[in-house]
Design a protein around this nucleic acid. Structure first.
Lengths: 190, 190
DNA sequence: AGTTTGCAGTGACATTTGTCATCGCTGCTT
DNA sequence: AAGCAGCGATGACAAATGTCACTGCAAACT
């Protein structure tokens, strides 16, 4: 439905032509093989292959295709990866809808659109978690207790508690629940 | 952006007129006071007051206004509440976009649109939580500790622990984190 | 060899969380 | 008035969690 609505929105602009719309990254690649595309617009959270992976593949195989990413959540980790992949625009879905058309026009003209405010989110804070801390927090967020986490990570309970304690400290949280919430909100889980 | 796109989509239909679009439930109520509205379309997960609460208020104060709910997540509890509130249509955002226009026309004509498949999810399990248990779980899910929850709910810490214990037991969880996860997934937190 | 570094583990301790039986109060019900 | 739900509180206890100082060990310098 969102895709259909965005299509309607873009077709209102007379300098745009929507050459296709599909549900998944795989279908998008198939479409790109059938016909040339000036600008690709995609979400990040897709079923199966993520929009960021799609952007990476498109860059490699169709370097002339501009890439615009539109996503729901402002997670610092997302925009950071998007910048690393050299995407042409990165927008949040709750931005005013005119911004999308603007970003597409700028992308087609070879200019990039990266909201300075979002960039600050991305650059301001670097993910402070170690891989182990992240894995432990992920499991804690799913409701695993210390023993369960130790089991899944093949560590002792004490070590798990040490990792979680480290994560709690780094994130300025007061317990593992709050730590998980903060990390997820920043895009530091997964 | 999604709102803008849906607006564009609906304005393509020549029998519709979009009389306004707003970001929050509060703004929607303000708009309803300013002018009559035939059909209200809203999401559930909004900043602040939820779309389901909005639907309830609208039913009470503007019983002639039809209510269409469009949401991202298929949580059993959502559609159940929607049905209880007498909502006129309940759609998922990943449904094809034509369904929205159809549902709106049917709602305006006094007919209800409730996907049979979604209904099955709703009838499967009933929300076992009391209001207090739910409020306590919500706050726990946000990372509040027992003292913080007690503070916000104006209860003693012991009582909060009793409520959480009840919720944990009813949901078959082993701790408050898991209980919150289960309740959220079922749509029992709102 | 000796040193450093980083990871995993241990032990001890305070705090928080989960559970349960029980109490006091209020507002019914009859 | 006596009885009785329902709600919130309390106290006590076991279990889980959070913190920290410290050990052991192997890989990587020098």
């Amino acid at each position: 439905m969102v895709r259909g609505a965005l299509k309607a929105l873009l077709e209102l602009e007379e300098d745009f032509r929507v050459v296709g719309d599909v549900a998944t990254a795989e279908e998008a690649l198939a479409l790109l093989q059938r016909q040339p595309v000036d600008v690709l617009i995609c979400d990040i959270e897709l079923p199966g292959v993520s929009g960021l992976s799609l952007a990476e593949t498109v860059q490699r195989r169709w370097p002339d295709c501009r890439r615009v990413i539109v996503t729901t959540f402002n997670r610092g980790g997302y925009i950071r990866r998007a910048v690393d992949l050299g995407v042409d625009a990165f927008l949040l879905k709750d931005a005013p809808s005119e911004q999308l058309a603007d970003a597409i026009r700028r992308a087609a003209a070879g200019r990039r659109t990266l909201d300075p405010e979002l960039m600050l989110d991305a650059l301001g804070e670097t993910d402070p978690l170690t891989t182990k801390e992240r894995r432990a927090l992920q499991l804690a967020a799913e409701g695993c207790n210390t023993a369960g986490i130790a089991d899944r990570l093949c560590l002792s309970e004490g070590t798990v508690r040490n990792y979680l304690s480290g994560a709690i400290g780094k994130l300025g949280a007061h317990n593992r629940i709050e730590a998980a919430r903060i990390a997820r909100q920043k895009g530091w889980l997964y």
